[in-house]
């Protein structure tokens, strides 16, 4: 029981992660893929933050007095600040990726007039087919 309770958090996170991953690889809409990627990444952030949590702990910010001097209270338990730092970085990386992805989507839409993966693949396949017709057998056979 204790094991289950102690790991329930992680399992929830895993379910979320896999939902995100599922959206990324199963959906054909480019924007939705990016949303999925976000869900996936945010769930990973949860994994990290869960690692840092200490039962009965508090946020790793020391109390200060009015002059800004740090008060040290040995009874307070702090959660692990390191994962927080890592995740701050990771969030930034995430938004950077998202914005790039979205910028690409805007351009793709302009060039292909669609943001559905299948349509893009079809158009690319058509282009490739045309290219192969033009260039394919010009070399006297396949090999």
């Amino acid at each position: 029981m204790e094991f289950i309770l102690g790991h329930l958090n992680y399992w929830f996170v895993i379910v979320l992660m896999m939902t995100g991953l599922y959206i990324v690889i199963s959906r054909g809409n480019l924007v939705k893929k990016i949303v999925g990627l976000n869900v996936f990444q945010v769930s990973v952030f949860m994994l990290y933050i869960s690692i840092g949590k200490v039962t009965g702990g508090t946020a790793p910010i020391f109390p200060t007095d009015l002059q800004g001097k740090i008060q040290i209270d040995p009874t307070i338990v702090y959660s692990n600040p390191l994962p927080h730092v890592l995740i701050l970085t990771a969030i930034v990386v995430g938004i950077a990726t998202t914005s790039l992805g979205l910028a690409l989507i805007v351009r793709i839409r302009e060039e292909y007039n669609t943001i559905e993966e299948q349509d893009i693949l079809d158009q690319d396949a058509a282009t490739a087919h045309a290219e192969n017709l033009a260039h394919g057998d010009a070399m006297g056979g396949r090999a």
């Binding site: 924007v31 702090y78 927080h84 938004i95 989507i105 805007v106």
Partner: peptide, 29 residues
């Protein structure tokens, strides 16, 4: 989970900036 900095950032970025960007994108697409 005691990660206030992260919460702050996630709210600003995830709910703020990236939502705005995505809205902008679907407006364009």
């Amino acid at each position: 989970l005691d990660a206030v900095d992260v919460a702050f950032t996630e709210a600003a970025v995830g709910a703020g900036i990236s939502t705005v960007l995505m809205l902008g994108t679907i407006a364009l697409t």
